[in-house]
Structures are given as structure tokens and as C-alpha cells.
Design a protein around this nucleic acid. Structure first.
Lengths: 137, 137
DNA sequence: CTTGACGCTGGACCATGGTCCAGGGTGTAG
DNA sequence: CTACACCCTGGACCATGGTCCAGCGTCAAG
């Protein structure tokens, strides 16, 4: 059946072989089985799991957090799973809010900056708090 | 005048002394002057600069990026400063979009999860791609 | 002058998330 | 059987962003 070696698995998901082994060391992704020789074999389940790990990572979750998320799928307690998801949701919303504040600040700076003229007239320079814009005493 | 030792500076901004020295090693924050003894002295300008570093960091900028941002305040080329700010703005907007996608996915999961019953009915568990929810071949 | 807080330097150490290498063995096609 | 790609393990190494320590000098109040 669809059984992959570590190289094929890594290629499918676009990660390095070492990364797959690193995830294994980190307790995130175990091979479905091993050949007599010790070669790792992966099934579709591990492919899905590895893709999930990568997706979650891109979205700012640490490997530790991802491990917790993954652990929830084994803990068959639906209530706890839901609560954990809610916590992650709140966390993501906080991150968004912080970035939105940054975006607003940046966009105000960009739109009020004439883009020419004296540095002293540039709101971006002023807001950076650089030496050129601050009192030296 | 308002001249601070490294300890006072660190306390005002809420960072450790070692962190201030680490930023100095990284080329982000030099003391305004040194006493004969070698003690670092900081003025208001450095206080502002340190606060800027922290703010930017919270918003996901690396120390390297912060260094670039700070360098712009010395480059008195307003055009380049504005362009750099626009690039950062686009970057922040991308991060927001990625997080919003994650938030939407998470919130759909949370709101469609009954919070009780069979694990098989929990959309969160299903989406994790865990072994409990996948075919084993 | 003594004491205690504060500061100095250089270098070790930490966690995170990999990445690479040596020195082997294995799998398979020709 | 030979070749060559693939895989194994263990351990070193990397960048980032700190954090801590030893061993020593300094500053300021009492």
C-alpha cells in the first residue's frame, strides 16, 4: 500500500529528511513501522500528521504547542479538546490584535510621510526615536 | 541631566541588564557615553530607542530587522525610509492574513464542535489528522 | 574608610528549530 | 554481482535571543 520511506515522505511535504527525524526525536511524528533493517516506513496517517505540523508551524505555533495539539487527538476527551482549541483561538486573536496595532501605526506613518523633503518632516523618522529626531540632553 | 546607568535604563524598560548589553553587542543600542571607569551612561534618546526595540520585537520583528529599521533613521534619505516602511507594512499585512485564516479555521472548529459525545463527532479531532480519525490503510 | 549595591569583561550555557557529517548498512536494477 | 541511491545512528554545528557566572573594579551613603 501507500507506504513511504523517509525520503519520499519528506519530499511530499517539502521538508528535509533531517527535519522529519528531528520531529521524531521531538516526539511529534513516529513512523508507522520499521523494516527489519531499521528503515522507517510511513503511512498516509503520518503524511497527514506531518502536513498538519507544518501548517501549524507556519501559523506561529511552536513544536511544543503542536505536540499538545496533537496529543489532544489521542485524549478522547472532547471537552478538553474543545477547551484547548478555544485557548489557541484566543491566543491567535491576541496576536492578530497586536499585529493590527502595528499595521495601523505603520500605515499612518507611511501615508502621512510626504516621501520627499526634509528628514525632519518625515513622521517615520520621528517615530523611530532615532538620534536625529531626539534631544541630546 | 537625565542620565541613566545600565541598571536604571533596564528597569525603566523592563528588560534585564544582560539584554541591554546583548543589544549593544548586536549593534542596536550604544550608550551615549562612558564614565572613566567604563560604566555606561544612557540619555533619553537611548531610552526611547530601547523602548522602540522592544515594541518592534513584540510585533514580530527580528533584531536584525529592527537594526535595519533603526539604520533608516540615520540614512537621511526620506524616499528609502518610506519604501522600507511600506515593505514592513506589506509584511505585517501578510502575517495578519495568515493568522486570520488560522483564526477562522479554529473558530469554525470550535463552534461546530458539540463539546460532548463521541470523539468521532468532534470536528477538531477530525481536522487534526490524528490516528484516531484516519484510515490505517 | 567600610560596606553594599552597582557595573565591568569574557566566556559559558540555555532553548528552539533545525542542518550536516562520518562511517557505516540496505535495496534494487541491470 | 556491482552500482548507486537510499537509509541508519550518534553527535557536532548553526543562528537567534538571550541568561548567568566568575572575578574583579567602582560609587555613594553612613
Amino acid at each position: 500500500m501507500t507506504s513511504l520511506g523517509i525520503g519520499a515522505l519528506a519530499k511530499r511535504v517539502g521538508v528535509r529528511i533531517d527535519t522529519v527525524r528531528y520531529y521524531e526525536r521531538s516526539g511529534l511524528l513516529a513512523p508507522e513501522s520499521r523494516l527489519e533493517s531499521g528503515y522507517r516506513r510511513y503511512s498516509e496517517a503520518e503524511l497527514t500528521r506531518l502536513r498538519f505540523i507544518r501548517r501549524a508551524q507556519v501559523l506561529g505555533f511552536s513544536l511544543k504547542e503542536i505536540g499538545e495539539l496533537l496529543a489532544l487527538s489521542k485524549a478522547r476527551n472532547v471537552v478538553r479538546v474543545k477547551r484547548a482549541a478555544e485557548v489557541k483561538l484566543a491566543d491567535v486573536e491576541e496576536r492578530i490584535a497586536a499585529l493590527v496595532r502595528m499595521r495601523d501605526a505603520l500605515s499612518t506613518l507611511v501615508s502621512t510621510c510626504p516621501g520627499h523633503g526634509e528628514p525632519a518632516d518625515c513622521p517615520i523618522l520621528k517615530s523611530l526615536g532615532g538620534e536625529d529626531c531626539n534631544e541630546h540632553s
